[in-house]
Amino acid sequence: MEETKRTDKDILSKGIRIMIICLFLMFSGPTALHIAFSNKEKPLYIPLIILGILLCLGAIITLFKGIQTIMDSLFGKKNK
């Protein structure tokens, strides 16, 4: 008998939470970079650029992790 594939709702909710974090990072990273580039003469110029770049990289990483988690919930994990 063939087993019916169902969506794992716990993993799906974890993936959606990761995507919400990604959404926050997608807005805060470019905002920090914009603030840094509009105030080049301020003493916090370099730390804001570093923070903005780290937030943007975090957004990219959490985007891929969130999509992977949602795909795992829909199709099941691959057994190696």
Rank of each mutant, 00 (worst) to 15 (best):
M1L: 09
M1G: 13
E2G: 04
E3Y: 06
R6M: 14
R6S: 15
T7L: 09
D8V: 00
D8P: 02
D8Q: 02
K9W: 06
I11R: 13
K14N: 08
G15P: 00
G15M: 02
I16G: 01
M19D: 10
I21W: 04
C22M: 13
L23K: 11
L23S: 05
L23E: 02
F24W: 14
L25P: 04
M26R: 09
F27Y: 11
S28Q: 04
P30W: 03
T31E: 14
A32Q: 13
I35M: 07
I35N: 08
F37V: 06
F37S: 05
F37A: 08
S38V: 05
S38G: 06
N39V: 00
K40F: 07
E41W: 04
Y45K: 15
Y45F: 14
I50M: 04
G52S: 01
I53F: 06
G58T: 05
G58H: 00
A59M: 10
I60G: 08
I60F: 15
I61E: 05
I61P: 02
T62P: 01
T62C: 08
L63M: 09
K65C: 06
K65R: 14
G66D: 02
G66H: 07
Q68C: 09
I70L: 01
M71W: 06
M71H: 02
D72E: 14
S73W: 00
S73D: 01
L74R: 11
K77F: 10
K78W: 10
N79P: 00
K80W: 05
